[in-house]
Design a protein around this nucleic acid. Sequence first.
DNA 1: TCGACTATATCACGATGTGACATATTATTG
DNA 2: CAATAATATGTCACATCGTGATATAGTCGA
Lengths: 107, 107
Amino acid sequence: MDKIFKKYHPMTETAFYILFSLTEPRHGYGIIKNIEALTNGRLKLGSGTIYGTLMKMQTDGLIVLFSDEERKTIYEMTTLGQQILQQEMQRIKELHDHIIQFEEGKQ
Amino acid sequence: MDKIFKKYHPMTETAFYILFSLTEPRHGYGIIKNIEALTNGRLKLGSGTIYGTLMKMQTDGLIVLFSDEERKTIYEMTTLGQQILQQEMQRIKELHDHIIQFEEGKQ
DNA sequence: TCGACTATATCACGATGTGACATATTATTG
DNA sequence: CAATAATATGTCACATCGTGATATAGTCGA
């Protein structure tokens, strides 16, 4: 299990936003649109990115199938996924702190 | 020039910390130690990472040679490098904002 | 009916970080 | 003084990752 935590530390921006989108159950295409909305159109994921990442995260136990309808494969986060998301959010806060400290030091 | 901005957007954590370390002139080994100190030993860059990245950033005009002594090759940031660092810091703030909003929404 | 949108999947490609290996100097410590 | 750790740079093969092209197919509005 520890190996998985290292594997996702740090995460890429793309992987983070995908996992972050799964704080509620969503399907691939829905995640793409959610990220596009969150970032005001800045981040548009390619199909290879989303389906490849979802498969990898499923293999690693970060997410599981929530429902598998005809044309919608919906995923939800596992407890492990939540822990890894938490770890990543902590890391981003660390980055943010460094930036704030730097900006304060400039004045 | 616009191409370079896209190339470094988003940056990896590693690339960010390297550029961030060059807010004052430093050499490769010094950058490694600076990042290690900043992150409390969490992030230890391999030699391939640091010298490869420095060469790439020099080619792209983000950094230039500051002084080239016998055993220390010191770099400093260019104006372009500062602009790209600024862009990246803005992106991290965006990430941070999303996290804060999420945490507020949970209560 | 025709195009736009929704939806999933695969694959080759380029870019990137990593760690091993190599090499050499300097400082410390027993 | 000799051994060891720390400083310092560099190269290379390897694995991982995001991207965009390509493919396929259903739905919905004009």
